[in-house]
């Protein structure tokens, strides 16, 4: 990848029906998703560096885990959480265009 880093700012939900062998597919939260009893995993990247991980919760709503995100270049994003809310993780963005965010599995 070259040039501008992918602009991932926004709220994304996992469109697991579209996943491939190597990529998890996310679409904007307002995409007309198919109804799903299992809550969709969500990622919210904000321009100020804050991040919200939406994880399936025990009451069927996404459980919001706030953290921070940082673009490390080369499509790599570093996600960190306050102590106790999970280990830091790296996301590898394959592409982000036309309302589709693809993250390496």
């Amino acid at each position: 990848m070259s040039g501008e880093p992918p602009d991932v700012v926004g709220a994304w939900l996992h469109s697991h029906e579209e996943d491939t062998e190597t990529a998890a597919v996310y679409r904007p939260a307002d995409h007309p998703f198919r109804p799903s009893r299992r809550p969709r995993r969500g990622l919210e990247f904000r321009a100020d560096g804050t991040f919200t991980d939406l994880r399936p919760g025990p009451d069927d709503r996404p459980r919001e885990v706030p953290g921070r995100w940082r673009d490390e270049g080369g499509g790599r994003l570093r996600i960190t959480f306050p102590a106790g809310d999970g280990a830091p993780s790296d996301l590898s963005v394959i592409s982000c265009a036309d309302g589709v965010l693809m993250i390496a599995k």
Binding site: L13, F33, P35, S36, R37, R40, D59, D60
Partner: peptide, 27 residues
């Protein structure tokens, strides 16, 4: 409901003003 959510609930012990269940009308 947005985000393909069917519904969500509160367990007992939540604040009274949030207590109850929310269901998407199509479900």
């Amino acid at each position: 409901l947005a985000g393909s959510l069917l519904g969500y609930a509160t367990f007992p012990g939540q604040p009274p003003h949030l207590d109850g269940v929310v269901i998407g009308h199509s479900f």
